[in-house]
Design a protein around this nucleic acid. Structure first.
Lengths: 302, 302
DNA sequence: GGTGTTTCATGACAAAAGCGCATCGATATA
DNA sequence: TATATCGATGCGCTTTTGTCATGAAACACC
């Protein structure tokens, strides 16, 4: 690949090696080529930079003064281009992404572990946000892309649903429902339920879908953080309604029972600015997430 | 003239103007040319720098990050090349020359005045040295070239005799010799003479030339600086033997009489490193000196 | 909602730049 | 004096680079 400012390169090498031939060998061109480059450079600036007889090469006064400057420039250019090439070749670079907390608790850490192993020098900043603020962070370019649990449709953003995350019932092993392999929503009627409320929650999502199915479920505890729901359920205070991606990471002795009739789930989406190319570092993570975020939750044994 | 790193130039302009067409107009190329340059640049580094649809141009993440760097580089390169071009076009730059004091007293100031008027920004450093040390300063590159009063022949230096500087007798108007239009050396026998001794002096030069002519002249006062000789002569203490270039600058009411039979003179030379190109600033002064240092001393009315 | 306009990309071609080979002329070396 | 070495040069070829004509997509305007 040709050097972007090969004239300066030639000048530097010739000046340092004191010989066109030696420099030619080092730069893998012929001596003729270097003669031409120096002639071009000199006529471009209008100054002799090298005093050359048929036997010797020496810097002129101007040449001597210019040499360090030329070196600095060439170094600078080389460094910049090399950095870009490295970014390209190894997908290096720091990135920021946004995510809803539940994904960061459930599926993302493993994926990020893989990413960290493949790109040990890339710093990853994670912005923990609610779905709405994830979208906001992406739009404001605070995050290269975002993971959230709505399916929005915004003109400037591109949203891709990666997988659906079904709701499951979560309760202690001594709970009456603990042994079940699946539970119909209608069956929850008699039990104390623990759900997540608040603006960034899934409660609305659940209620809409259940209402559509004509099912009415009443909640005993409403919390804001899913960790609170887990806490309550783990103490045997009721059945928590959680997405599978969270629960599958918990201790296996705790019951996680698919909720059916209907299966209610939420979309897990990546969102990014439409038409904008990600940095290779971000694209690599994007690809990894898109590939690794497989189906979530216990398979229903039909 | 083509820009040395036109790819970056194109990138910067397109990024800042947000349009290939606008940048094309500004850079006086076609839009197609810019498209090609960007394509080259991107494939060179292996990264997309600009997200472009058929309607809009926007920086990619990498592009945004790289833009300031690109600007810095281009600025840097431009500044360097422009500086060299300015040096070339206007012979700018600081210089140092070496000279024997007598020339600096006599002929050089006027020449330097002309030079200073033509090159107001060029600082000129003058190294006041004896002839031998002038040569030394030139050889050590402390001076771009030197003015001295020997004719040496050194393999690494190039010496050019510009003019010859004849010795004249200098005395007060009330001195018996004051009215003469010329004096033969032999006629000095009966008078008190003032000459300059010391290592950097012309005494040896004079004595050799006179001895060759079979003339013996005895000196009464031997001083080291020509200013001392002038001082003594101005007080009427004798006849000072000085070179014409010094004396011609003194008050015209003081007698300056050519010394003849024989005419003894010393060569005024410029000396420079052989085969080395001077900086334009130095070359300009060199040319000026070579041209302006005309014949010295009162014309002998034959 | 066509229609025209604007914008960047592309294919083909032409111009120019860059490079290498062979060779020259000069100079140091033996 | 002969030889080897060094940078410069004439010439031709290859590669690069830019332009022209044109295409495709997106927007603007009736």
């Amino acid at each position: 690949m040709k050097h972007p400012i090969d004239g300066l390169e030639a000048f530097i090498q010739i000046a340092e090696l004191g010989s066109f031939n030696k420099a030619a060998e080092k730069l893998h061109v012929t001596q003729t080529g270097l003669t031409r480059r120096i002639q071009r450079l000199e006529s471009h600036v209008g100054l002799k930079l090298l005093d050359r007889t048929t036997r010797t090469v020496a810097l002129t006064g101007i040449g001597r003064e210019f040499l360090p400057e030329a070196k600095r420039i060439v170094d600078d250019v080389d460094r910049s281009f090399d950095r870009l090439k490295t970014i390209s070749r190894f997908s290096t670079g720091d990135i920021a992404i946004a995510s809803v907390p539940s994904l960061m608790y459930g599926r993302l850490p493993l994926i990020l572990k893989t990413y960290a192993a493949r790109h040990p020098h890339n710093r990853v900043e994670i912005l923990d946000r609610t779905s709405t603020l994830v979208i906001d962070a992406v739009r404001r370019r605070n995050a290269a892309f975002g993971l959230h649990v709505q399916s929005t449709n915004q003109p400037d953003l591109y949203n891709e649903v990666l997988v659906r995350d079904p709701f499951v019932a979560y309760c202690r092993s001594d709970h009456p429902l603990a042994g079940r392999s699946s539970i119909a929503w209608a069956e929850l009627a008699g039990f104390d339920l623990i759900t997540i409320g608040g603006s960034g929650s899934n409660r609305l999502l659940i209620e809409v879908q259940l209402a559509r199915a004509g099912i009415d479920v009443r909640t005993k505890f409403v919390v804001e953080y899913f960790s609170s729901a887990i806490g309550l359920a783990s103490e045997g205070l009721g059945v928590a309604i959680l997405v599978a991606s969270i629960v599958e990471n918990l201790r296996p002795d705790l019951a996680q029972i698919p909720l059916v009739d209907p299966v209610v789930d939420r979309p897990v989406s990546v969102i990014r600015r439409r038409g904008e190319t990600l940095t290779p570092a971000a694209q690599a993570l994007y690809n990894l997430i898109a590939r690794e975020l497989g189906p979530i939750g216990p398979r229903l044994t039909a």
